[in-house]
Design a protein around this nucleic acid. Structure first.
Lengths: 103, 103
DNA sequence: TTGAAACGCAACTAAATGGTTGCATATGTG
DNA sequence: CACATATGCAACCATTTAGTTGCGTTTCAA
């Protein structure tokens, strides 16, 4: 479990998760595009995310496809947000989103 | 937002959140009890949690009371867990908890 | 089979982090 | 007031971490 939090601690890794949330099944090379870091740096970050089970992978030929796994993130909320608070906070988020014209 | 993830990255700080989740309004001294760290170390951790808005405080005389704020934690889930997945994962968590005899 | 594309492994460096010790400040209490 | 209680601030040290560079391996394609 500690690996999950450590993995989420880095901005670059959170950006990678954002990318995978938007489009699943990307390769290392695709995930590098537009980033400042070297390919090796991105590869290390993905390895950390994979070790934390936040990203799962599948090999296809010489390509390695990456997928976001939402389960560990979902479990974080369950740890410190009381069940009765959950619905309340959801309602607040929805209201906020609607006021901001999102969705 | 980065402060929240950085704050959650440390095991000691997560333990402090656990304590505050169990009993709200504890002082620095109370939060130190039973831990190996020095008081100053705990104080630093609480400052980081407070800066991340994960803990809010209130001064009462020479005492400083600490409270867990669930909002930032709740927002994390919203970032990478799609809305339609939410209900599904909640159901899985509930099932798992019931099978383990919790609650 | 030669070369390019996609990725993995290892050593190194600079910066951030967690923890300690020592001292200072404010607030109650006899 | 004198003293203990509760907390804050600052310097310092050991470890971890993010990033780089360099080289090796596997897969595909002409």
């Amino acid at each position: 479990m500690g690996a999950v939090f450590r993995a989420l601690a880095d901005e670059s890794r959170r950006a990678l998760l954002d990318r995978l949330f938007e489009r699943k099944g990307q390769t290392l090379g695709e995930l590098c595009d537009g980033l400042q870091m070297s390919r090796q740096a991105v590869s290390k970050h993905l390895a950390i995310l994979e070790a934390a089970n936040l990203v799962s992978t599948r090999k296809e030929g010489r390509k390695k496809l990456h997928f976001l796994n939402p389960v560990p993130i979902h479990e974080i909320a369950g740890r410190w947000v009381a069940k009765f608070e959950r619905a309340h906070l959801d309602a607040l988020s929805d209201l906020k989103a609607r006021l901001e014209g999102e969705e």
